Amino acid sequence: MRIGIPREIKNNEKRVAIIPSMVEELVSNGNEVCVETKAGEQSGFNDIEFESAGAEIIKDTKKVWDCEMVMKVKEPLPEEYQYFRENLILFTYLHLAAEPSLTDELQKNKVTAIAYETLALKDGSLPLLTPMSEIAGRMSVQIGARFLEGTFDGKGVLLGGIPGVAPATVTIIGGGVVGVNAAKIAIGLGAHVKILDVSAKRLREIDDQFNGRVETLMSNPQNVSNAVASADLLIGAVLIAGAKAPQIVKESMVKAMKANSVIVDVAVDQGGCIETIDKITTHENPVYLKHEVVHYAVANIPGSVSRTATLALTNATAIYANSLATLGIEKALIKHPELQSAINIHDGNIIHPAIAEAHKKEFVSFS
């Protein structure tokens, strides 16, 4: 199979979908890899390294997209829709529940769209999403700490405080991978941390994991309202695989926050779990002020640590990319049955139930 790796064009998206060692493995298994020139440059992988591993370096973006399977990091942007066609396999992060126009275009052109973020193992874990969730969770606290500085219109608060001065309060909505990784960094910086989740079992696990250093709360409207009001930094970390994120934090709750507090909504690429996150921002212009609260709504947070993120992502995707390319979809599904949960669109049909529900469209089982 010919695999194309285009250069990412999303604002300040510096990751790349493949690394030279993956190229070497794919080529050794009889595949061809076409990498758009400079696709890996901002992740520290140059054209010479890819070429030495066996890739063909291509300057023409269209030729890269003409390959049988295209691997990306982020969802295609409107200017890339022109490359869609029947029988194209697209393997990338898609987040289709929050992307109606992209969903329509993929359906119309009968692209087989395979999403990293919905691939689920039997235990419910999401192996291709987890590494980026780990990074985004950890970075959410770094980002929040920066924007709490007065230089960036924040409260002028040091997250960990100092002796004689209380630390900041970090409220995390959601106790999954993002939430736990955010808590690790916030605790390490000395903040007072609250985590809210709908699962009592999960809260017990978090309490054990952090030896009581995190305040755990059931996620109900009263607890959310109180925890949001007390937050210096509020982190949205809610995920329902494949589905649009539920808006847990209402606008009235944000209005009750202290002036110049900070919100970082990691769920923004799934529509956001905070009602006042009503637009996606970019790394160039990452924040806006609403109700005197600083809102950070960048949808590709890990893109700013591209070297780490690229290595973490390809560690997870390599095995599936190799199977899809070498065996084809049908045989790859026999080897890795979990791949079926990653197929979002095939032959013009929506194959994932959560995406069908999000767009009020028909769900069709993959066959």
Rank of each mutant, 00 (worst) to 15 (best):
M1H: 14
R2H: 13
I3A: 07
P6Q: 02
I9L: 14
R15G: 12
A17N: 11
E24G: 03
S28I: 03
T37C: 12
G40Y: 00
G44D: 09
F45M: 03
I48S: 15
F50V: 04
E51H: 11
S52K: 11
G54S: 07
I57F: 06
I58L: 08
K59G: 15
V64D: 02
E68R: 13
M69Q: 09
M69P: 08
K74P: 03
E75S: 10
P78I: 00
E79N: 13
N87Q: 15
L88Y: 11
L90R: 06
T92G: 11
H95L: 03
N109H: 15
A113S: 13
L119E: 06
L121Y: 13
K122F: 09
D123T: 09
G124S: 07
M132G: 01
E134M: 08
A136I: 04
G137Y: 00
V141P: 00
F147L: 13
G156H: 04
L158K: 01
G160Q: 06
V165D: 07
P167S: 12
T171K: 02
I172G: 05
I172P: 01
G176C: 14
A186Q: 00
I187C: 04
L189C: 04
L189M: 15
V193P: 03
V198K: 01
L203W: 04
D207F: 14
Q209W: 07
G212Y: 14
V214L: 14
T216D: 06
M218D: 08
S219W: 02
S219F: 08
N220V: 10
Q222R: 12
V228I: 11
S230N: 07
D232Y: 09
A237K: 04
A237M: 02
I240M: 04
A243V: 00
K255G: 04
A256K: 14
N260C: 11
S261P: 09
D265I: 07
D265Y: 06
A267I: 01
Q270F: 06
G271P: 05
G272S: 03
I274F: 02
E275H: 02
T276E: 02
D278Q: 07
T282F: 05
E284L: 09
V287T: 15
V293E: 08
H295V: 09
H295E: 09
V298Q: 10
A299V: 08
I301E: 10
R307D: 10
T310D: 13
A312P: 08
A312D: 10
L313S: 06
T314P: 11
A316S: 15
T317M: 11
A321F: 13
A321R: 05
L324F: 14
G328Q: 07
N344R: 03
I345D: 07
I350G: 00
E362A: 13
